[in-house]
Amino acid sequence: MDRLIYTAMTGALHTMTQQATVAHNLANASTTGYRSQTDAFRAVPVFGDGLPTRAFVLDATTGADFAPGIVNETGRALDVAIEGEGWIAVQLEDGKEAYTRHGNLQLDANGVLMTRQGFEVKGDTGAIAIPPESRVTIAKDGTVSVLPSDPKITAVSIIGRIKLVNPPAAQLIKGDDGLFRLRGGGEVPADPDVVLVDRALEGSNVNVISEMVKMISLARQYDMQIKILESAQQNAQQASEIMVLRG
């Protein structure tokens, strides 16, 4: 009897966890460059005296969906999207490197190129600082060029190049901040084959219809597991009554 309770109890618990993942994906359906989170159930044996035949049901985060989102033109000079595979490298406050496809860039008070989340965009030689009163253009290879605001001056100055990388998806893990990092830490060398689309942004890759269907399916699974617990309780009560009568 307790085997049934173990399975149904943990199944119901982690079904709620998966519902939270689905809700998080739906909440980010319009977030630029968002990669939907994926997870799955797995069985884990319970260790201990008298428990070798029991098993828990656990929710395991299997990673993220790396399918590209739809690229939409914005006309904004600091908006970039990645065409196909690849990532934009950013530097965290602790100096470590992370990766994003959120190309809605901006300048801080010092003119340093940043993401909307406040992370510094890495360049080939460090931070990319834009001179004041300049017009910015970003090329397909990540090269950042500026023109003075004076239309009479046509000299273009190259001030840096955004670090674009393309590590294998299996080596990446998603953090709570939405950024991706290498599983073992460290940094990835720049990949010259990664291509940017300027004045455009990549949308989320969340399939809203699929996530809604999954939410309904998980709700039914939860109801089924609760019914199993209720059946186990009824069986236990009936067994106790039988034992009393026989006693």
Rank of each mutant, 00 (worst) to 15 (best):
L51R: 13
N207C: 03
G160Q: 06
V213P: 01
S30N: 15
R54E: 06
A200F: 07
A236I: 13
V90R: 06
A27S: 15
R246T: 05
A129C: 00
I128N: 05
V213C: 04
T100P: 10
R101D: 02
L26R: 11
F66E: 01
K152N: 15
P167T: 05
T115K: 11
I153M: 11
Q19P: 06
P148A: 12
I226W: 05
S210V: 08
L196F: 09
V90W: 13
D94F: 10
T31L: 12
D59T: 06
A29G: 14
T154P: 01
Q221F: 08
Q221M: 15
I128H: 05
V208Y: 00
T100E: 08
R246I: 10
T100Q: 13
G50N: 10
Q117Y: 00
L92G: 03
R181D: 01
I209H: 02
A239D: 09
T32V: 15
R35L: 14
G186T: 07
H24P: 00
A77I: 02
T154Y: 03
L182N: 05
A40E: 12
I153V: 09
I226M: 15
F56S: 02
S231K: 14
A190E: 07
G84A: 11
D65I: 01
N28H: 14
I209D: 02
Q91V: 13
G178L: 09
Q234K: 15
E120F: 03
A81D: 03
S210I: 04
G50C: 11
V80Y: 10
I130T: 01
G203N: 09
T53D: 10
G184P: 06
R54P: 00
V188E: 13
Q234M: 08
T74V: 07
A127S: 13
D94I: 07
I5F: 09
Q171E: 14
L196R: 12
F47G: 00
R54F: 15
T31N: 07
G63D: 04
I82N: 04
Y34H: 08
A170F: 05
A81E: 04
T31I: 10
T10W: 05
K227D: 05
A29D: 07
T38S: 08
M212P: 00
M224A: 15
M224Y: 13
L107D: 06
E187R: 14
F41N: 02
Y222E: 09
P45E: 07
I173A: 13
